[in-house]
């Protein structure tokens, strides 16, 4: 990835996890989100539980507002995703700051922005997956 673009890396795993929390709240909840976050921690080499905690918190928030969230228009959904991913970034940077790591705080808008722009496409692709495989 070219230098400078890495600050705009979208949170793919987070988006996909949040989509399943919205789409299948009876199957995918806080627990599975936490496990996904733990895998991301293992892959990124960050402190074990860092992403897991923030994934679980976001899944909880989305789980609570799922009925309202589904009624929102695509644009408003993207805006909400922007703020949710921002929250994820803030939690991560907070946790990394406690460990004494360097935090480029100004750049975590970038990742939230690209994630919000990606959300409609991810939800489109995964919704067609649901329809195609007839997932209940």
């Amino acid at each position: 990835m070219p230098k400078g673009m890495q600050n705009f890396q979208p949170q793919f795993l987070l988006l996909v996890t949040l989509f399943w929390v919205i789409a299948l709240p009876q199957n995918v909840g806080i627990g599975i989100s936490w496990v996904n976050g733990l895998f991301l921690d293992g892959l990124q080499g960050t402190l074990l539980g860092e992403n897991a905690l923030s994934f679980a918190i976001l899944a909880y928030i989305l789980y609570k507002i799922q009925h309202r969230f589904r009624l929102l228009s695509a644009v408003i959904q993207s805006v909400s995703i922007f703020f949710l991913v921002m929250l994820n970034q803030i939690l991560l940077f907070w946790l990394q700051g406690i460990q004494g790591q360097y935090v480029a705080w100004i750049w975590f808008f970038g990742s939230a922005l690209t994630s919000a722009l990606l959300w409609p496409w991810i939800s489109l692709v995964l919704t067609s997956c649901i329809n195609y495989f007839r997932i209940q």
Binding site: Q6, N7, Q96, Q101
Partner: peptide, 9 residues
């Protein structure tokens, strides 16, 4: 595969 943009690994 560069997953964590904030560390040099």
């Amino acid at each position: 595969l560069q997953l964590n943009p904030y560390s040099q690994e």
